Simulated scan of single mutants.
Amino acid sequence: MNRITLSAISLAVTSMLSFSAHAQSSVTLYGIVDTGLAYVHNSDGHSSQWKMSSGNLSQSEWGLKGSEDLGGGLSAVFQLENGFDIGTGIAQQNSRLFGRQAFVGLASTQFGTLTFGRQYDPLSDLVQPITADQFSGFFASPGDVDNYDSSARFNNTAKWTSPSWGGVTLEAMYGFGGVAGATGSGQTWSVGAAYAQGPFSVAAGYLHIDNGNAQATTRGTTSADTLFNSPVNSAYASARAINIARIGGQYVIGPVTVGAAYSFTDYVADAASSFGTNEKYHNGSVFALWQVTSAFSAIAGYNYTKANGDSSAKYHQVNVGGDYLLSKRTDVYVMAGYQHASGSNGDGPAQAVIGSFDIPSGANSQIMAIVGMRHRF
């Protein structure tokens, strides 16, 4: 009887421990608050502007993320992330509650992660982190015409991310357009690959955005957020599709990280477009980041963008910045950028627009400088 009783107790305890292990879960509240004082020379036709600027090194955000262990190397995962302007408290991403990310899915140590919801594309996930955009949207292409700084996120998507296989990571995403009777209208799809080994990292990817079948719905009805946020590419909002190919790489040499990236972006015209020839953007960038001390880092970069096809604009941009850690979670920074534009942007003379800040200059040059503070929790 004692043996039977002990066996029963042992079985019950084992079952409870097994259930407890399988039911392990966690939820994390996190966020970033980033704001600064900005000076802009040439802003919307005026020679100078002083303003508060939110999200300069990192977008101000708060979020919830969590996982539940389902056993056998499988977990349920979710993430909800809100972006906001610290100066006004207004939600960003078109006033969405969880405009930055909102997804749920399954993560397997063997087969990778499959998630569903509003998400970043593979280029943002794999290529962006090894470019100067890791520091600030200052370094993005003018008006973020190639989604360098993730101006567009994607709704109604399914995304698969592989485990790391010998330093190689693969990713694929599909976004449903949701237009009845026109399956491809408004769809988005993207693929990417990255390789990291020691001090060297390289990544590349391709993104296709269908901007809406004009016969089935209005142009601009798509699973993607808009990329038409500045005079750089606003003339091409009626494009049938946007295709973006990007590659980037970086190398760490002691305290210095150097990197380069290139993108080709094609705004495709059709009979429903207000322009007749495809607009193409070639963007090349280089940067050097120096970790001067454990607390202080400095960065410099150059970005060149050339448009051809429907227009002939050229943009030269130089940026510098510095960041100092007051603690593990709080830092102060200074950033400055200068851009010169020439040629035509499709609506008229090209206007300078520094990075992804999308401030129209009303002129062929623009200077922007920001002093700010960031806190992470």
Rank of each mutant, 00 (worst) to 15 (best):
A8I: 13
A140V: 09
G63T: 04
S20V: 15
M173H: 03
G181T: 10
F176T: 03
L6Q: 11
N364V: 11
G259T: 03
M373R: 12
Q24I: 15
F176W: 10
S124F: 12
Q197I: 14
A271W: 02
I247A: 05
G372V: 04
G184F: 11
Q49A: 15
V127P: 01
F228E: 05
A298I: 15
Y148H: 15
T157L: 08
L106T: 02
V168E: 01
I354R: 00
L289P: 09
S47N: 12
Q134Y: 15
L80P: 07
S10K: 08
P129S: 02
L11H: 11
Q79I: 10
S294W: 13
N319P: 12
Q92A: 14
D144E: 03
Y174F: 13
P255W: 00
L227D: 01
T293N: 05
S312H: 15
H46T: 14
E81R: 11
A237G: 14
A241V: 01
A8K: 12
G143K: 01
G186F: 00
Q49V: 14
V258W: 02
R246F: 05
H41P: 06
R376A: 11
V320T: 03
F78G: 01
L123S: 03
F377S: 06
A237M: 11
W165N: 04
V104E: 00
N364K: 14
N156K: 11
Q317L: 14
T257C: 02
I367C: 00
G249T: 08
G249W: 06
V168P: 04
L6S: 07
I32C: 05
G137N: 11
V353L: 08
Y148A: 13
V252I: 14
A152I: 04
A204S: 11
G362L: 05
F111R: 06
Y267T: 08
H282Y: 10
R153Y: 13
A307D: 09
Q250P: 09
A224V: 07
I9D: 01
V145Y: 10
W290H: 14
P231T: 09
T226R: 04
I90V: 13
Y262M: 07
Y120I: 03
L106E: 00
L123G: 04
G112Q: 09
Q215R: 13
A91S: 11
Q134C: 15
V104S: 00
G362W: 08
L29Q: 10
G99K: 08
K65I: 07
G137H: 10
S58C: 01
G322E: 01
F287D: 02
A288R: 06
N42W: 10
A269C: 01
T330L: 12
V353T: 07
L289I: 13
P199Q: 00
S75N: 13
T109A: 07
I90W: 00
G192F: 02
W165H: 14
K328T: 04
